[in-house]
Simulated scan of single mutants.
Amino acid sequence: MKATGQILIFDADDTLWENNVRFERVIDDFLHWVAHPTLDKTEIRAILDDIERANAVTLGYGSAMFLHSLGQCFERLRERPVSEVERREIDALAADLIDHRVDLVPGVTETLEELGARHDLLLLTKGNVDEQQGKLDASALARHFSGVHIVAEKGVETYRQLAAEYSWPPERTWMIGNSPKSDILPARRAGLNAVFIPNAHTWVLEHDELDPADDRVLQLGKFPDLLDHF
């Protein structure tokens, strides 16, 4: 039996459209380009992950932070500043990240269309406002949502504040996303339900452990499976 009259809050990147796979392609090219005499690609990737983890706290998310992190990684490996020529080469590696092109996850448009006929749909995404808005505009999905929220970070307080602002009843409110760290765990700690839809390309910094005994987290295999439950 499907639930009706629910409040469904959707993540954007890697839930509605593919995102991190584009960054991963750039990282693969960067690791090949920056070849180090003693460190292998796995070790260099670990250094880059640490740099991104630190930069996300102060610079937020998106392509600008990512490019800055690539430059810092280069400097740490080469133990010298990046030259102007090398900076242009790094920028060229990541040129595809700034065009706001989006590849929708299969079935997203049709699923949102049907869900919107019986539920209240909202969008909650984190990152640079202009960058996220550009991707949303390119996706042509904004018409499905009664509210769009672009925030710097998604933590427990983000969900609590929005729930209070909208007077969402927790038992009928669901956060739907691919990130345990940003979508599932903080929503649950705020008292909301959650739907976890894994994406094979989820950013490593968004990984976290979920409680398999938590019966208020629904795990699905693909986005259109939402129609079997809502």
Rank of each mutant, 00 (worst) to 15 (best):
E209I: 12
N128V: 01
R189D: 15
Y166W: 15
H144D: 11
L220V: 09
D29C: 13
S83E: 05
Q72I: 01
W17M: 03
E52W: 15
I184Q: 06
D99R: 09
K41C: 11
R87W: 13
A194D: 06
R88W: 01
L67H: 14
A94T: 01
L141R: 15
G191R: 09
H207G: 00
V108E: 06
A54W: 04
R80I: 01
R78I: 05
D11H: 09
E206Q: 10
S63V: 14
L210E: 01
H68S: 12
S146K: 14
L121W: 13
G177S: 05
T202Q: 09
S167R: 12
G127Q: 02
A12R: 13
R172Y: 00
L162G: 10
G221M: 10
L226D: 03
K135N: 08
V204G: 05
Y61N: 03
S63A: 15
D130V: 00
I98V: 13
E153G: 02
D28G: 06
G5A: 11
E153N: 11
V217F: 09
E171M: 04
L67T: 12
M65N: 15
A213E: 08
L16Y: 03
V34N: 04
D28V: 10
G147I: 00
D49I: 07
R189V: 00
H229C: 01
F196N: 02
F223N: 03
L8F: 08
L67P: 03
D49R: 12
H32G: 01
K41Y: 07
R88C: 10
I47S: 10
D40E: 12
G127R: 06
A163R: 04
K126Q: 14
L192A: 12
K2C: 00
R118I: 00
V26Y: 06
N128D: 14
L8N: 09
I184A: 06
V21W: 12
E75T: 04
E114Q: 13
L31M: 05
A163P: 03
R189N: 15
A12L: 07
